[in-house]
């Protein structure tokens, strides 16, 4: 193989790597800019923006298994809810009120729920997989409902009073601290996920989404890879859930509901499956519209979600971000 050396000099690994980092920086800048704009545009509605951040983490986590690995699941709220309850119970019953510790406990709770869900859901394929995913979210919901000593059952879990962050920043009445804390969390996780999805592991997951048979013919374990991704996804969703518990100081049973799972899927699809930006944009648009509509007429919300879903499937199967990205790509190619 005498060509080895020449080809190594032809292809410089550096440009790809540095352009990756550049795009990460642009991504961080966009998130920061949006956060600042949101802060000044809706100073009285920071709670809504903060909830958006928690849900963004949840939808990002769903994107990892659905978008990057191709697992269609309707039970992903189990991971989010597990994180929320883990953090909430730690605070309300065991006096663990240090916020960063609570987030870490939520991450562990989410990871455990991710492991359990992953093992169960990946047992089947196709319809069986879907059935397992729906059954598991109902199972978690019922379990939380019955364990009301710890979870507060259908009344929800209250009495979560987090300490100041690092002992310095107290959670204020206007939710400024929670908002800034959320943005920091989001940016950290976004960067880590960017690294994850372009890592060898991320590449392997993309392969599994497209052809699991080919992946196993390469000698990789499809199942073990997917379960690992489920655990990672659980960490992210768990952090989202825990952050929601910290910022709202309550955990409701609806965080573990089928509807919550389905709505996360809607947000993901709305934004664009398989891209991190898609997950973020889908969440912003969905929760923005939800807030607007339920202010006008809460009755029609479910109908609108349904119609939105149908419309996305029919007219923008790549989602908002995916469609926009495709347009830009075509424009670029045309320009060249």
């Amino acid at each position: 193989m005498s060509i080895t050396n020449t080809s190594a000099t032809i292809i410089q690994p550096l440009p790809a790597a540095s352009s990756n980092w550049l795009r990460d920086l642009v991504g961080i800048a966009i998130i920061l800019a949006a956060a600042i704009v949101g802060y000044f545009l809706f100073p009285n509605n920071l709670a809504l923006l903060t909830r958006m951040i928690a849900i963004m983490l949840f939808v990002l986590s769903l994107d990892l298994v659905t978008g990057y690995c191709g697992v269609a699941t309707l039970g992903h709220a189990a991971l989010f809810g597990a994180g929320a309850y883990a953090a909430g119970i730690a605070a309300a019953h065991f006096g663990v009120t240090e916020p960063i510790t609570m987030i870490a406990i939520g991450a562990v709770g989410g990871a455990v729920a991710g492991l359990v869900s992953g093992v169960v859901i990946l047992r089947g394929h196709g319809l069986a997989q879907l059935v397992l995913s729906i059954a598991i979210i109902h199972l978690f919901h019922e379990a939380a409902n019955k364990a009301s000593n710890y979870t507060g059952g259908s009344d929800g879990l209250a009495g979560i009073t987090p300490d100041p962050i690092l002992g310095l920043f107290e959670f204020d009445l206007w939710g400024r601290t929670a908002y800034v804390f959320g943005i920091v969390l989001l940016i950290v996780i976004f960067v880590l996920l960017r690294i994850l999805v372009r890592s060898p592991f991320g590449l392997l997951c993309r392969g599994i989404r497209q052809d699991p048979v080919r992946v196993s013919a390469m000698g990789a374990s499809v199942k073990r890879t997917l379960i690992k991704m489920y655990v990672i996804s659980g960490v992210v969703a768990g952090i989202g859930g825990a952050f929601n518990a910290v910022s709202t100081q309550v955990v409701g049973l609806d965080s573990l509901s089928f509807t919550n799972s389905a709505e996360a899927l809607v947000m993901l699809v709305l934004g664009g499956v398989g891209t991190l930006f898609g997950a973020l944009i889908g969440t912003i648009v969905f929760i923005g519209v939800e807030d607007f509509v339920s202010a006008a007429n809460p009755f029609h919300w479910l109908t609108i979600v349904g119609a939105l879903l149908i419309a996305v499937v029919l007219f923008a199967p790549k989602g908002l971000y995916g469609t926009a990205a495709a347009l830009v790509e075509r424009y670029r190619k045309g320009g060249k």
């Binding site: 309707l74 899927l265 809607v266 349904g306 879903l309 499937v313």
Partner: peptide, 17 residues
């Protein structure tokens, strides 16, 4: 499959609403 799930969930939500 994902497309089918989304479409039919959308229909379900509409009917419920």
């Amino acid at each position: 499959e994902l497309t089918q799930v989304l479409m039919t969930i959308g229909i379900t939500f509409c009917v419920i609403g």
